[in-house]
């Protein structure tokens, strides 16, 4: 199970638009839906969303999956509204959800995962001034993607071990060893990151590293 096995976006007019712009547009739509939920506005947004979706040409798999999620949310919300309020409220709620879901699907279908990831990570660049290196952010995300399948395997093995002992899968007996494993792995990964020169970036000449402090040296 690799996190990166997502479908590639289909070619189309929306493909060319930058991921950043699309995300900002989506955020704007979200704010509009929450702030100005009048039927006219919602209908307009839904129309825009429909157009965007057509332009995005999503894959059927994505359409089905997200359509199901939307349908569930819409059904539950409409049901609650019908019980506690009236038909107009129910319709309003469904429109709001739709106005959000359509453009969201359009964005996801027309933007490559890597592009989205790069865009979101680059939003972290201003944090540079707070001492957060963009490279560190990117590495953290990459490490997560790298180790999720490994952790999933560990979790599966723990569950199997429980079943083999005849016990029903217990969450506590899964979580604790999983966490311990994650922490010990993180220690080794940290060593590997240092050993592979991650913190040697940006130094063309060989020389003393300015940020070594023997008192803080690795103990383990």
């Amino acid at each position: 199970m690799s996190l990166l096995e997502t479908s590639s976006p289909r070619p189309g007019p929306l493909r060319a638009v930058g991921a950043g712009r699309k995300l900002v547009a989506l955020l704007a739509i979200g704010i509009l839906v929450a702030a100005v939920p009048r039927p006219v506005v919602l209908a307009a947004l839904t129309g825009i969303g429909l157009l965007a979706l057509v332009l995005a040409r999503p894959q059927r798999r994505d359409l089905v999956r997200l359509g199901a999620a939307w349908a569930l949310a819409a059904a539950v919300t409409a049901g609650v509204q019908l019980v506690t309020a009236d038909r107009a409220a129910a319709l309003g709620s469904v429109l709001r959800l739709t106005a959000l879901a359509l453009p969201a699907l359009a964005v996801m279908a027309s933007t490559a995962t890597e592009e989205l990831l790069d865009t979101v990570l680059s939003a972290a660049r201003p944090l540079r001034h707070l001492g957060v290196r963009p490279d560190s952010v990117a590495l953290t995300a990459a490490l997560t993607i790298r180790f999720v399948p490994e952790l999933a395997d560990t979790a599966a093995r723990l569950r199997d071990a429980q079943r083999a002992r005849g016990a029903r899968p217990q969450l506590l007996a899964l979580a604790v060893p999983l966490l311990v494993h994650a922490l010990t792995t993180s220690e080794q990964v940290a060593q590997a990151v240092v050993a592979r020169s991650f913190f040697d970036r940006g130094e063309p000449a060989d020389g003393p590293s300015p940020d070594t402090d023997p008192a803080l040296c690795a103990r383990a």
């Binding site: 060593q191 050993a195 040697d200 130094e203 060989d206 020389g207 590293s209 070594t212």
Partner: peptide, 15 residues
């Protein structure tokens, strides 16, 4: 420790 960068250039570590 002090010249970590220079040493890591010379020494590769396989865990």
């Amino acid at each position: 420790v002090r010249d970590g960068r220079a040493v890591r250039r010379r020494v590769g570590f396989v865990f």
